[in-house]
Every structure is written in C-alpha cells, then in structure tokens.
Design a protein around this nucleic acid. Structure first.
Lengths: 332, 332
DNA sequence: GCTTCGTCGGAAATCGATTACCGAGATCGG
DNA sequence: CCGATCTCGGTAATCGATTTCCGACGAAGC
C-alpha cells in the first residue's frame, strides 16, 4: 500500500546520528567519509528502505542522467526497433532513455517535447511527425537542450540529425532492379507515403531521380493497411507484371499480403521491394527484399553525439540492400 | 544552442513587476488574480519564453501527472502495442506515459523501476521479466506507488494485475482444433516459452490441461528465431501432419516461415496457431489463427484502476479466437 | 459608523536533495 | 615547535516551483 511517506535523507541522518551532508556524501561517494560513519549511514538507509528522490536531486543539479525520445508511433516496428536500440545504447553509460509516443498527432508530439523539456532531460531525441509542422517543437527543444532529430528531419532547423541517405537507398533499389529487368521499359510502380515527413519526401524524390520523374506513384501513409489498399488499386489498374517499390517495409508487407491473397505470385508475376529492414521483412514468405537501415549504428552514433556534447553535426548513414525472395536475384 | 539558462518564475515576476506567487497563480489558475496583473504576467512569460520547470513543481507537489511503464522489450510487437494503447489511454486525461525498456534483463528492469520511483511517478505499470526473480522490483514498486502488473505477474505480490486468462485462451484453441481433427489421436505439438514468466507458465499449463498432460512440448523464448528453430526440430523429429500450437504470434510466425521455407504446406500438412493477436499475424500468408488479447480494453482498464485509486483489484479478460488460414475452418 | 467578511497581493516556508563554505583537528615540512 | 596544508563533519544556501499565512483594502450588514 502506497500510504507511508517514504524516508528522506533527513530521516536517515537522524537515525544514523549524522548530518544530511554526510548521508549524501556516503551514498553518492562524492567525498570521502569516515568508514565508521559510512557504515552507520548505510545501515540506517537500509533499515528505512531509503531511496533517493531524483526530483530533489534534479532540482539541485543541472543534470538528470536522462534522455527523452519522442516517437510518432510505437506500432510501427521500425520506430520500436529504434527505441529499443537507443535504450540499449544508453543503458551502458547509465543513462535512462524514456520513450514518449506522439500517437501520430502534432499536439501530442508538442506535449511530449514540453514534458521532456520541463523534466530537464539532458538531451532529446525526436523523430518529427511532420516535415514542416513539427518545426515549433524542434525549435523549442533545440533552444533548451541538446536535440537530435532521428530518421526524419524538419526543414530549416539548426538541430542535428541522424539517419540514412534515402536517395542512396533508392539508388540501391534501382541498381538491383536493373540487374533483372530493363527499368526503362519494364513497369515499375512506387507505393509511397505522402511527403509529410522528410523520409517520405526523400524516398519519393529518390524514386523520381533514379527511376523516372514520372514513375507511376500511389501515396498513402506508413501502414500495412495502406499497402493492401494500394495493391488493390494496382490490380484494378491492370499493372500486371510490375515491380512494386515501396517507402517502407510495413507498406510492402501489406502489398505482399494483398497480392498473395488475390492469388498472384511473387516474384514471378510481381516483384516487391521494401524499405527499413524490420525483422518481419525476413519472416515473410517470400522474404522481402528491402533497404536496411543500420539501426544499431545509428543508435550508437546518437549516443556519441550526446556524450561529446556535439550539437552541430549530423550523420548520414549508407543503407544496404538485403535481397530477399520477393525480387529475383538477378544476373548483372 | 542550449547555452542560455532558461527563464524562471522569478524572472517573469521581475519583468512583470509582481511577486512569484502572482505568477504562479496566474499561470496555474489556482486562485483568482486581477486581470491587469494577469495580462502583465502573461506578456512577461511570453516575452521570456517561460516554460514551467516540472522538477520544481514535482518537488513541491505530491503528484507528477506521470505514469511509468516498464516493458521487458520493445522489439516484441505485442509489448509495443500495449505501450501504444496505454499512452493513448492516458493521453486524454493529460497524463504522460513514459516507457522504459528493460531489454530483457532483470538488472535493467530493476533500474527502470528505481528510476520511475525516484522520479515520483503517480503510478507504475510493469510487465515483469521473470515470474519469480522480478519479485523484489514489484514489491519495491508496490510499497511506494500504485503499481499494476500487466500481461505477466509475479507470484505472491499484493500488486494488482491486468491481463487475459491464458488458460481460457488455450481452451479456445483446443475447441477450435477439435472441430477439425480428433485431438486425442491427431498429433499436436506445443512450441512454447520456458515458464519464466507467468504468461509462458499459464499457457503451458493450459496446453497440458486442455490437450494432454504429456503433449509433446518444445520450450524456448518469445522470439521468431526460436520459432524457426523449433520448426526445424519438428521436421527433424518427423512430426509430419502435426498441429503446432504456440505460446505467441512471434513464435508462430517463425514456425510458419521455416515450414514454408522448407516447402511444407500450411494448413494442409501442418496447422499453426498463435497467441496475442499482433498485427503481423493478419498480414502473414497464410494468415495466422491466433488467440487475440483485448489490448485496448486492457489499457483502458488500467487507466480506470489508476484513476479510481483502486490498488487492490485485478482484471482478467477473456481472449477471443481469430481464425486465420493456418488452421482449417472446421465443421463443428 | 463600526464590525464582519471576502478578495487578493506578497513574504516566506516548503518539498529533498547537493554543495559551497567554515572550522576543528590531524599531518607534515622545515 | 610553529605555521601551512589536508581531511572531513556540519551548517546553511541553493535549485524552482507551490502554498500557507498574513495583512491591506473594500464591500456588506446592522
């Protein structure tokens, strides 16, 4: 029962017969303390079940040993993989990563940023919901703490950024597809996401650059439901034999599910390429060809940026291609 | 650049020419304030870009409007779905849900609990990593704040619990499988997880109760990798024609991937049943038959427990069965 | 006209830690 | 043997808000 007020340092000091300063020094080890007193303090703390109140500590100190992460959504496996890798990366130096989900909403995102700033986090990692409309949140965050944009970025902010080169990813896709078919004559359809986020934007641009400025394009959101719907349209529009390049694995898996459900064969009739490299891509049957993002290295890179207090630089990683069964191996 | 110390209430008070008490009252609306002063305060706060320091507030008040969630792992889509639904449920009453991943480790889990307790969260939701060894963390949490165990629980703690009846889930599976085959003669293999968590434990017990006390069983962890490995063993051991019941969708998807990869047909040769009802189950081809947990209702139930300050009761939900293509529809 | 309320601003206490500063005693060097 | 230095405990300031308490003032009741 959470009724009893928990013990404070003053309680420990009283029981141990010493001052609160000695208690603080003993427990944090900031200054040497007589071993006899140390033992008294440790025993008193143990007996009272003392646990430090981090709020009190945070108020006095400047640092909280906490990093906040605001994600658009935890249902997308790519974002939860980023969250998982980040918390692992920060676990080692004893920093707590706290995750807040914006639930796809700009207002909730803003609330999350305000909340973390108010909690005096040491740094904030943010996957912005919207390429333009998240700007106030990113700017506010960057003005207050070390802020790093992850995976997506907002136009015209000074905050640093860590992510992959989406264009380079699309170049990999083009080169791969070109080993099997003549991309200038063979039908290619892009199932993307509306360019509300920088990743959606850049992947769309990459498609246009490396395939064709007027590549047939269907735009929706980053979801399997959209992938299914797009696949239905592709069938309705008679794009038989097309190679379907998508903006994300979740979309690609939706496309794949619908095509298989309709009895179409992949990769014989349709070829599919995803983006991100989530675990489920390898689990699909046929397994998904995808552009893999180096999630673990990205997480470590963010940790370095924060540890070195480098709040100016950005890191663009090169993705790599994982060739699965949804596209033919090809013979260059 | 995060160089400038951010404005405090004292700064606002100085600029507005009033006392800090008036600033506090104006911004929080706890007591009526002269409209003229209100305007001065609001303008001064605006001009200085004042943002409340939640650490200062939390120290003074008892409440933080924060609920902590400690999950074993964010890579498992079932846990991230719970996290997502919970943050949505708390978003409405203006409570921040902060998520901490234990990364599968008891030590990290303990660190997460300590961290949230130290931060003075109003309540703590915990998916314990281990059925016995998480006990110290759960007990410590329950002694300090309103604590709710989710999905899994620890033996012998007073903390309340929200989850599904795992045995009832297995009963649903048995009844479903029985419509298609004679379960007393037809081979059934259980691919489960070692009973380190209450869910793994109860699902195993359910299998033994509703199928047979000596149902052939392979135990590993909650991962697709384990599902693949188990499928390989099933093939090696010559369990052709078996119905494979699993402890989780991620395991089932691993089993399915391996069987299909080996050219086996599902559901003709093998039948597969999952547990949890994650999104990827519906996306698989063939789609997965699974025991679905009412994640959204569970999240809302947790919110009610916390809002009503009810720290004694527990909620067992009844799961339902989603019949997919990995098992025959059956004719009762 | 005098007392009784009610309203509302400000001073100061408070939450729980850390830490600057002071001073007492020990140690050390010359 | 004396002053300089070091060690280490305690006192009190401090972080930034909220909130209690007090007092001044005005309105209302009789």
């Amino acid at each position: 029962m959470p009724l009893a007020r928990s013990a404070t340092m003053a309680d420990v000091a009283r029981l141990a017969g010493v001052s609160v300063a000695t208690v603080s020094r003993t427990l944090s080890g900031t200054r040497s303390v007589d071993p006899v007193m140390q033992r008294k303090v440790t025993e008193a703390a143990e007996q009272l079940g003392y646990r430090v109140n981090l709020v009190g500590r945070a108020l006095r100190q400047t640092r909280t040993s906490t990093v906040g992460l605001v994600v658009p959504d935890l249902d997308n496996p790519y974002f939860s993989a980023l969250a998982q890798q980040l918390s692992r990366a920060f676990s080692d130096p004893g920093i707590d990563l706290l995750v807040f989900s914006a639930d796809g909403s700009l207002e909730t995102e803003a609330r999350g940023v305000r909340s973390f700033l108010g909690r005096q986090v040491d740094a904030l990692v943010l996957i912005p919901v919207h390429e333009q409309r998240s700007e106030p949140s990113v700017t506010a965050a960057a003005a207050a703490v070390h802020t790093i944009q992850l995976d997506r970025r907002v136009q015209g902010t000074a905050a640093s950024y860590v992510g992959v080169s989406n264009r380079a990813g699309m170049q990999l896709v083009r080169d791969h597809v070109a080993t099997a078919v003549d991309v200038s004559t063979h039908p290619v359809v892009y199932v993307g996401a509306r360019p509300d986020s920088s990743s959606a934007h850049e992947r769309l641009d990459g498609m246009r650059q490396y395939f064709s400025p007027d590549v047939p394009t269907l735009l929706g959101d980053f979801s399997a439901a959209w992938g299914r719907e797009a696949a239905a349209r592709i069938l309705a529009d008679g794009w038989t034999g097309a190679t379907v390049v998508t903006a994300a694995d979740v979309i690609a898996l939706g496309v794949l599910a619908h095509l298989l459900h309709e009895g179409r064969s992949v990769p014989d009739e349709f070829r599919i390429v995803g983006f991100d490299g989530i675990g489920a891509a390898a689990l699909a049957h046929p397994s998904l060809t995808t552009v893999r993002q180096p999630v673990e290295r990205m997480a470590r890179s963010i940790r370095s940026l924060i540890e070195s207090d480098d709040n100016a630089s950005s890191h663009w990683f090169k993705p790599d291609l994982v060739i699965g069964e949804t596209s033919p191996a090809g013979t260059p």
